[in-house]
Design a protein around this nucleic acid. Structure first.
Lengths: 225, 225
DNA sequence: AATATACAATAGTAACGCTATCATAAACGT
DNA sequence: ACGTTTATGATAGCGTTACTATTGTATATT
């Protein structure tokens, strides 16, 4: 099994957490804690106690918990980007490429042993519940200028370019893709917590396939020539 | 001009803010402050200083700032619900009803003198930036049980029932509507802050009509018989 | 005239977000 | 082998946030 790691934007951290043992424990344990407590209740103090370190040490890696959250979520989108490249390779038909990308987006994420200290099932739940909070802030423009949202924008661009191949005349390729990216996560959340907002039922296997069917149909119908 | 006011869920507040002068100042000024500072930077202390009252007095109206945010946003959806009833009345064709509802959702909100202490343009910006934060929390199930999200769910249900009239066989009426509700606000935000995620350009007049065209087309294509 | 009520004033507390300083142990360069 | 950098731990501290409690007072209500 190849040893790989993603190079994330340097602005996200003060010291690269992938390079040290403490950094790796910060990543690993923060994923568990944010998943469990939610981002609002999560603090560096609680994290430091859990990993038996100190608040000050955690602050040497990340400026604040908001940057740590963006770091984790950027990791997730970078990982999906990489999975999409795999899924799409050798497919020549853009419709097939679109379907394969959508599948990667929607499928339930399993632990990937390539990345020892990242537990992807927890991270997927974090992305569903917390991703919007990374950019719905007053610092969005400053953060964006620093390139903190590049991995997400890159996925959007990649799928939008497939959409353009399917129908070069469709005027809203980025909007339809960002709509799909949004709703993929929100429909899963609604299914679980606000079921009257969705027709996807929260059933272990079925809700991923239902969600896929829903998304595929509205995207393909939207962009059809 | 008729004097009307909306009856909101009693669980949202400890003392009804619509009934007293201080309560009304809390509503009016919190809308301005959240719009300006963003929800994270907004505190009851800052609000109290601005309205020349005390933190303790604000706490007599709202348990915490999260409830106050939900109150404001519930007010907004209740207001839209009421505007939609007006827009849809006398329209018999469900497609026309759908278009009229969508138009109410998307159009730029103007100050409505029926509600003296609510400045709707600010409130619309708050809904765009902060709405998702009302339910993306660990207390979502408890809040939902208290009925805090009813106004939004009611709008979704209303539009979904129009969708069902357009095509009774479409299997995802609630999901397509909640997708549209979501993306309406997010595309406006992207246009302004993350333009590469959208094809809607941030231009004073045009972006509302562009957004309308985008939404109408993907909804109608999704549900066509 | 007695009594609720609405609110201001004040105080206080635990937790949060963050910074600073100093000691120590391991790792690294020469 | 020795001096130095680097990473971390230990501890302290500060201003703010989120919230609760108590008391005094003016205004309405009965």
């Amino acid at each position: 099994m190849a040893i790989i790691s993603f190079k994330l934007n340097n602005n996200l951290f003060l010291r690269d957490p992938q390079g040290t043992e403490l950094g790796q424990r910060i990543i690993e344990e923060s994923i568990h804690m944010i998943d469990e407590l939610g981002f609002e209740q999560f603090t560096f103090k609680k994290l430091a106690d859990k990993i038996e370190s100190t608040e000050a040490s955690v602050y040497r890696y990340f400026e604040n918990k908001h940057r740590l959250l963006i770091y984790l979520i950027d990791w997730y989108w970078t990982w999906l980007d990489y999975k999409m490249d795999f899924a799409v390779q050798n497919l020549t038909n853009p419709i097939d490429q679109l379907k394969a990308s959508l599948k990667v987006l929607i499928e339930e994420k399993q632990y990937d042993p390539n990345f020892a200290f990242v537990y992807e099932p927890s991270l997927q739940r974090i992305v569903i519940s917390e991703f919007d909070k990374t950019y719905l802030t007053k610092q969005v423009d400053a953060d964006n200028r620093e390139g903190l949202f590049l991995p997400y924008k890159s996925i959007c661009k990649k799928i939008a370019s497939i959409v353009k191949q399917v129908n070069p005349n469709y005027p809203y390729p980025h909007s339809i893709v960002s709509t799909a990216l949004l709703t993929v996560n929100h429909q899963l959340y609604y299914a679980k917590h606000l079921p009257s907002l969705s027709d996807i039922k929260y059933q272990p296997e079925k809700h991923y396939t239902d969600l896929y069917t829903f998304c595929e149909s509205f995207i393909l119908n939207a962009i059809e020539k």
